[in-house]
Design a protein around this nucleic acid. Structure first.
Length: 667
DNA sequence: ATAGGGTTAG
């Protein structure tokens, strides 16, 4: 029975060629061949092909045990050629359960869960009776593809075949039901007949937590007949994922033996909650306990470094990876690419990217996104084309990167063409995020009407992010009426988001409508909304220094403020005039200037100029977008002090050099 | 008979 598109196998690998031949090889026993397949053939494709030839020559190919093992070897994800495994499978006559199970599992291991499901139907149609090994991968496939109907059907088959007692099936089933949000069905499986063991309990604990039922998880954890380290870890990572970092930490402290997963879960919880500094502290704590970090933790920590701009610590990890000859797998490599890109070192990001041998879509996405963030739209699009030349399928994240690149450099036609091609060429339905990028693109370019039209043509109701993009464009182009209209909707849609209030009052302030600015301020007060304070971080000698507006907490505050005054003296001589329209209060002009002068970004720059050698680049990470005034001041500083200043804001990078910015004042 | 399960990463 043919199950795949059958292109023929190479001549020498076809059964019919030599199955009748009798050579000395035929004396090889089944056992010897299996031994060969199970040892050498898992790493060497050459050995595998040789073994394949031998099975054909000796007539062992139609032995299901041999054929199954052979297919399993070909299906090893390491070879990245599952298509070939399927072709070989096609030549197995009347495969038995063993062979079917191998190929179904192979689908899963090669990221083809839907294929696993469809092959199961072929298997049943071919009258092969599934056994207990058949179902776990199928449940997993349903979990991944969210195939609820099929999952229920598989469960029914499990019952029909009398396999419900099996622990492997139970744990996979529990996970599946939990992923559907059906904890009660999961629990019923756990409590049903047969042997539920630690792994099933752990899966259930995890399931409860993934569904947000913390109490049920706690209760089960308490009354489990037996626990292992995995049970604790499931609780900790579950707490961490629910944002309950303190609870997680409490359990973590109670453990008598922690493994890498325990540490990793804690660190990850902090990262997910945006507590990057805390994450880095835990990492240091771990090292003080002499635990040698491995790639799992390292890639998490790299994400934390990337987010706070801790370039030096990130580089240390990179060096650590090299020093310990750790394999640069796709995840670790991607984390490094992301780190360097987010820390403003595109050169190093590119270096890692180029040397990586195991790139995945994520890796390309990180590099494309990095280029986009730096305003290098042509390069981002170039890389996108290269990705296709290398026959890698872009995913929806790839398009977010590419469209962002267009938005950051005003490439309207290209952006629209790409949005169009998503569906027509790549078969990927544009989602809200993609529309958001294009609304941003059109809006920034001043095409407000087109942006509005796009929004009304979207197949879904615009969310806050999309409207926010439109409103941002209104601010840039001084479109008060539209901005006001959108702003009102947005304030109801997201009454807790302080950024929206700031944007609206900014639009009013720019138009000099101070009464309305005041109204917004009062509304915020009524609703108890606090503005997100702007903060800037700068990494000097491996230590990240953070500044807030008018900050006086830094030990060197005196020097910093003195430096700032000196800087502004020089800037004024160069013709700098403060962009007081940035200030959201109707105060006197001089006061406005003072308010601008102590923006966190300027404090960080002053500190950077003080504490780094002349000529070295200054790298700053802002939590918000750069303001107009900081932008023009920084341009001038880069010229007057002859320094390259690299500023990362909430969405993109600005490379200031010789009085100019890489964003070409378009951001 | 042969094969297999949970908690950690971009």
């Amino acid at each position: 029975m043919s199950t795949t598109t059958t292109t023929n196998l190479p001549h020498h690998l076809k059964p019919k060629d030599i199955s009748t031949e009798s050579t000395s090889a035929s004396k090889l026993s089944q056992k010897t061949i299996l031994n060969l397949l199970n040892t050498k053939c898992n790493t060497s494709l050459q050995c595998l092909k040789l073994a394949h030839c031998i099975t054909l020559r000796t007539g062992h190919f139609q032995d299901h045990y041999v054929a199954g093992t052979l297919v399993k070897c070909y299906a090893n994800p390491h070879f990245n050629n599952f298509g070939f495994a399927l072709k070989v499978f096609d030549y197995v006559l009347n495969p038995n359960v063993f062979v079917w199970n191998i190929v179904i599992r192979g689908c899963l291991e090669n990221n083809e869960p839907s294929k696993a499901i469809s092959l199961y139907h072929v298997m049943v149609a071919a009258n092969s009776r599934p056994n207990k090994f058949t179902y776990p991968p199928l449940f997993k496939a349903c979990t991944i593809t969210h195939a609820i109907e099929e999952g229920l059907q598989f469960h029914a088959h499990v019952v029909k075949h009398g396999l419900s007692r099996d622990g492997h099936i139970k744990s996979a089933g529990i996970q599946m039901y939990a992923s559907f949000g059906r904890v009660r069905e999961a629990r019923r499986m756990l409590d049903g007949e047969g042997d539920s063991d630690i792994i099933c309990w752990n899966a259930m604990v995890d399931g409860y937590l993934k569904c947000g039922d913390v109490e049920a998880a706690k209760k089960l954890f308490e009354c489990m007949p037996d626990k292992n380290i995995g049970s604790w870890n499931a609780m900790i990572s579950g707490f961490a994922k629910c944002g309950m970092n303190e609870e997680a930490r409490k359990l973590f402290n109670e453990m008598d033996k922690r493994d890498e997963i325990s540490w990793s879960a804690i660190i990850d919880g902090y990262i997910k909650g945006g507590y990057y500094k805390e994450a880095l502290e835990v990492f240091n704590e771990m090292q003080r306990e002499d635990i040698r970090p491995r790639k799992f933790i390292l890639s998490s920590v790299l994400a934390a470094c990337a987010n706070v701009g801790a370039l030096d610590q990130g580089r240390w990890i990179h060096a650590y990876v090299k020093r310990n000859s750790m394999r640069m797998d796709a995840i670790l490599g991607t984390a490094l690419v992301d780190l360097y890109a987010k820390c403003g070192r595109l050169d190093m990001a590119w270096d890692v990217f180029e040397k990586m041998t195991e790139k995945e879509v994520y890796t390309w996405n990180a590099m494309i996104g990095g280029l986009a963030m730096h305003g290098r739209a042509e390069d981002a699009i170039g890389l996108f084309s290269k990705m296709q030349r290398e026959k890698l399928k872009p995913n929806e994240i790839t398009f977010v990167g590419v469209l962002n690149a267009c938005a950051h450099s005003g490439m309207v036609d290209e952006g629209l063409a790409i949005l169009d091609s998503m569906k027509n060429v790549y078969g990927i339905e544009p989602e809200m995020e993609h529309y958001g990028c294009v609304v941003d693109l059109l809006g920034r370019a001043g095409l407000l009407e087109e942006a509005e039209e796009l929004i009304s043509s979207m197949p879904m109701e615009p969310n806050a992010a999309v409207l926010g993009a439109l409103m941002g464009a209104c601010r840039i182009h001084g479109h008060v009426e539209l901005g006001e209209r959108v702003g009102k909707v947005l304030l109801e849609l997201e009454p807790k988001n302080s950024g929206r209030y700031a944007l609206l009052s900014n639009i009013y302030a720019k138009a000099g409508r101070w009464d309305d600015v005041e109204k917004v301020r009062r509304l915020m007060k009524e609703r108890g909304i606090k503005t997100t304070a702007g903060s800037s971080m700068i990494d000097v000698g491996g230590i990240v220094h953070g500044f807030k507006m008018a900050d006086s907490s830094h030990p060197q505050k005196k020097e910093i403020y003195l430096m700032l005054d000196r800087i502004f003296e020089r800037l004024h001589m160069e013709g700098y005039s403060p962009k007081t329209s940035q200030v959201l209060f109707d105060i006197k002009e001089e006061e406005k200037e003072t308010a601008l002068r102590y923006h966190s970004e300027k404090l960080a720059i002053a500190f950077g100029l003080l504490s780094t050698a002349p000529g070295t680049a200054i790298r700053i990470v802002n939590n918000l977008r750069v303001c107009d005034d900081c932008h023009s001041a920084t341009k001038l500083i880069s010229e007057v002090y002859n320094r390259e200043i690299i500023v990362r804001d909430r969405v993109r990078y600005h490379h200031f050099k010789n009085g100019k910015c890489s964003c070409k004042d378009y951001w």
